[in-house]
Measured scan of single mutants.
Amino acid sequence: MTSCHIAEEHIQKVAIFGGTHGNELTGVFLVKHWLENGAEIQRTGLEVKPFITNPRAVKKCTRYIDCDLNRIFDLENLGKKMSEDLPYEVRRAQEINHLFGPKDSEDSYDIIFDLHNTTSNMGCTLILEDSRNNFLIQMFHYIKTSLAPLPCYVYLIEHPSLKYATTRSIAKYPVGIEVGPQPQGVLRADILDQMRKMIKHALDFIHHFNEGKEFPPCAIEVYKIIEKVDYPRDENGEIAAIIHPNLQDQDWKPLHPGDPMFLTLDGKTIPLGGDCTVYPVFVNEAAYYEKKEAFAKTTKLTLNAKSIRCCLH
């Protein structure tokens, strides 16, 4: 018999989150649709729960009410004593943790798909938090293969000092899905179709896995975050240069030392320094102006996964 890495157990509980950011409308629209008619997301033997994560922000069509829901799922915020004085999103995070967690427990949901849009030209993107997770690498390989020839990129946010504390991190297997470009507060049919297909293929993978299909060893190309880059700023902290036209919409493309990065209003080009080629992502993302992030630098690498098969009882 072929030796293989056996994944822990079959997958039982899956959640699909929309509206973690209330103005990213593809996930909101799909989740609302699936709450009314969820036939397309159901798979035999699998509990799939669509869920609106930040209903107040969705109602106002804004990213958040008090603070970013997708950055506060750490033990400090989840452990705060519940009171009306807490920011709305912290209270909501505790409610979500109660419903789908608790985080880092045996009772937490197996998989959470968190649906997002970006204003950046990132196409279909899967966000991975753990480079050693054979199950998710296999799932992402399946999704990428199923979507081809449509490109699907994998963004690895594993980093020693950049801690995200994402909404989906309460699950055993957290999956971020990011599709763009799409303006905030807008629905685009092409973007919706791409996100819908990503979810379909992900659920198909889980179904095949649960039925005992063995997935042979595989490898995927990923883009691992190195650092986030702020806009150049003046002495008052105001933005002093904008994304250069040569960099705009060039997510995932190589940016070499000396290539144009920013452009000042008086026409001066600010190039990339250093001696390493990087791959920019979230270029000129609207939501990241407040976070002082013009783009993120990534490096390209390959992740390998062992063969996996479900432990059938």
Rank of each mutant, 00 (worst) to 15 (best):
T2L: 09
C4L: 14
C4S: 15
A7T: 14
E8A: 12
E8V: 10
E9V: 06
E9L: 06
V14Q: 06
V14N: 02
A15W: 03
I16V: 09
I16E: 01
I16T: 06
F17V: 08
F17W: 11
F17T: 06
G18K: 05
T20A: 02
H21Q: 07
H21K: 05
N23C: 09
N23P: 06
L25V: 12
L25Q: 14
T26G: 15
V28L: 13
F29Y: 15
F29G: 08
L30T: 02
L30F: 04
L30Q: 02
V31Q: 04
H33N: 15
W34I: 03
W34H: 01
G38V: 09
A39W: 10
A39R: 12
A39P: 06
E40Y: 02
I41F: 01
Q42S: 11
Q42P: 04
Q42E: 13
R43C: 03
G45R: 07
E47Y: 09
E47T: 13
E47A: 10
E47G: 07
V48M: 01
V48T: 07
V48A: 03
K49V: 14
K49F: 09
P50D: 05
F51Q: 03
F51S: 06
T53P: 08
N54S: 07
N54Q: 00
P55N: 10
R56E: 14
R56N: 12
R56Q: 13
V58R: 03
V58E: 06
K59F: 09
K59M: 11
K59R: 13
K59I: 09
K60P: 06
C61H: 12
T62K: 14
R63L: 01
I65A: 08
D66K: 07
D68C: 04
L69Y: 06
L69V: 07
R71I: 09
I72A: 14
I72W: 10
I72K: 11
F73Q: 11
F73C: 13
F73S: 11
D74E: 12
L75W: 13
E76R: 12
L78M: 12
G79E: 13
K80M: 14
K80L: 14
M82H: 13
S83E: 13
E84A: 14
E84G: 14
D85V: 12
P87E: 11
V90G: 09
R91N: 12
R91Y: 11
E95H: 12
E95L: 10
I96T: 07
N97M: 10
N97A: 11
H98N: 13
H98S: 14
L99P: 06
L99Y: 13
F100I: 07
F100C: 06
P102A: 10
P102H: 09
K103Y: 10
S105K: 12
S105E: 12
E106M: 13
E106C: 12
E106W: 10
S108M: 12
S108K: 13
Y109W: 11
Y109N: 03
Y109K: 01
F113T: 05
F113I: 10
D114S: 08
D114V: 02
L115R: 02
L115K: 02
L115S: 04
L115G: 04
H116E: 02
H116S: 09
T118Y: 00
T118W: 00
T119Y: 05
T119V: 09
S120H: 02
S120F: 05
N121R: 05
N121M: 01
M122S: 15
M122N: 08
M122Q: 02
G123Q: 05
C124L: 08
C124Q: 02
T125H: 07
L126M: 08
I127W: 10
L128W: 03
E129Y: 08
E129Q: 11
D130K: 01
R132V: 06
N133P: 03
N133M: 01
N134D: 15
N134F: 08
F135T: 02
M139I: 02
M139C: 00
M139P: 06
F140H: 02
Y142A: 01
Y142L: 03
Y142M: 03
K144E: 02
T145L: 10
T145K: 14
T145Y: 07
S146F: 08
S146V: 07
L147K: 06
L147I: 15
A148H: 14
A148L: 11
P149Y: 01
P149V: 04
P149N: 01
P149E: 05
L150W: 10
P151N: 08
P151Y: 02
Y155I: 15
L156T: 05
I157W: 10
E158D: 12
H159E: 15
P160H: 11
P160S: 12
P160Q: 12
L162E: 15
K163Y: 08
Y164D: 15
A165N: 15
A165R: 14
T166V: 08
T167Y: 09
R168G: 10
R168P: 09
R168Y: 08
S169W: 06
I170D: 01
I170M: 12
A171I: 04
K172E: 02
K172A: 07
K172Q: 07
Y173K: 08
Y173G: 02
P174Y: 15
P174Q: 15
V175G: 00
G176Q: 13
G176Y: 10
G176P: 12
I177E: 03
I177Q: 05
I177S: 04
E178R: 15
V179T: 01
V179A: 07
G180T: 06
G180F: 02
G180H: 02
G180C: 00
G180P: 03
P181N: 05
P181D: 04
Q182W: 05
Q182D: 00
Q182E: 05
P183T: 06
P183D: 03
P183F: 05
V186Q: 12
V186N: 06
L187W: 00
D190T: 08
D190Y: 03
I191A: 07
I191C: 05
D193V: 11
Q194K: 15
M195S: 08
R196V: 05
M198T: 11
I199P: 00
K200Q: 11
H201P: 04
H201C: 10
A202R: 04
A202Y: 06
L203P: 04
L203D: 05
D204L: 04
H208V: 13
N210I: 06
N210A: 05
N210P: 05
E211C: 14
G212N: 00
K213Q: 13
K213I: 14
E214G: 06
E214W: 09
E214S: 08
F215H: 00
P216M: 06
P216S: 07
P217F: 02
P217N: 06
C218F: 05
E221D: 14
V222E: 03
Y223E: 06
Y223D: 00
K224F: 05
I225R: 15
I226G: 08
Y231F: 14
Y231L: 06
P232W: 05
D234S: 09
D234T: 09
D234G: 09
D234A: 08
D234F: 08
D234R: 08
E235L: 08
E235I: 08
E235N: 10
N236H: 12
E238A: 11
E238T: 08
A240E: 08
A241M: 00
P245C: 01
L247P: 03
Q248W: 01
Q248T: 07
D249T: 04
D249F: 03
K253P: 04
K253S: 08
L255Q: 00
L255G: 03
L255Y: 01
H256W: 03
H256T: 09
P257H: 01
P257A: 04
G258F: 04
P260R: 01
P260N: 04
M261P: 02
M261N: 01
M261T: 09
F262D: 04
L263S: 06
T264D: 08
T264F: 03
L265N: 09
L265D: 02
D266W: 00
D266I: 00
K268G: 08
I270W: 00
P271I: 07
P271T: 14
P271A: 11
C276D: 15
T277N: 03
V278D: 01
V278N: 03
V278G: 03
Y279M: 01
P280R: 05
P280A: 05
P280V: 04
F282Y: 14
F282V: 04
F282N: 12
N284C: 01
A286D: 03
Y288M: 15
E290R: 09
E290Y: 08
E290G: 14
K291G: 12
K291W: 05
K292N: 11
K292Y: 07
K292L: 07
K292Q: 11
E293V: 15
E293D: 08
A294Y: 02
F295E: 05
F295G: 05
A296K: 10
K297R: 05
T298N: 03
K300E: 04
K300C: 07
K300G: 02
L301K: 08
A305E: 06
A305P: 04
A305D: 05
A305L: 02
K306H: 13
S307P: 11
S307R: 12
I308K: 02
R309A: 08
C310G: 13
C310S: 15
C310D: 05
C310I: 09
C311K: 15
C311A: 15
L312V: 15
L312Q: 12
